[in-house]
């Protein structure tokens, strides 16, 4: 399965990549803003996306809406510091399959990815 990692923090992109390496997902790219993420999404059609919300150019929720228009079967895990219930509900409403609040540990991310992959891993 193809993976796209989207976060405006390079440290978080590196951490996510490192934490999920055991899943043998094929990393097709990483993006630091929503516009770059959409371009990679259109080109590489990832099956799994980890997506931050607060980002320059295009925020994660707007990016999620566009991704769902292109491929509603893509499994998107929102990873965000925005911890209020309204934000997580909004993400799920627009098609995200999961929501992991920051800060997170390696174990928490692995559990979320496992849940996201379900019986496809």
């Amino acid at each position: 399965m193809k993976l796209l990692i989207v976060d405006d923090s390079n440290i978080m992109r590196r951490a996510i990549e490192k934490y999920v390496k055991d899943f043998k997902l094929d990393l097709i790219g990483t993006a630091g803003d929503g516009e770059q993420a959409l371009a990679l999404f259109k080109t590489h059609s990832p099956d799994v996306v980890t997506l931050d919300i607060t980002m320059p150019k295009l925020d994660g929720i707007s990016c999620l809406k566009e991704m769902m228009k292109i491929n509603p079967r893509c499994r998107v895990l929102i990873i965000s510091a925005l911890k209020d219930p309204a934000t997580s509900l909004s993400a799920l409403k627009y098609g995200a399959k999961g929501f992991l609040p920051k800060p997170f540990t390696e174990l928490q991310l692995k559990e979320e990815i496992l849940e996201l992959l379900g019986d496809t891993k």
């Binding site: 965000s80 510091a81 911890k83 934000t87």
Partner: peptide
């Protein structure tokens, strides 16, 4: 460069988490 990035992520996480108290 990574430390620039990290301090930004830390303040973003702390402030973003405060939406739990202040609302969306």
């Amino acid at each position: 460069d990574a430390l620039y990035d990290l301090i930004g992520e830390m303040v973003n996480t702390i402030t973003g988490n405060m939406r739990e108290l202040f609302g969306s």
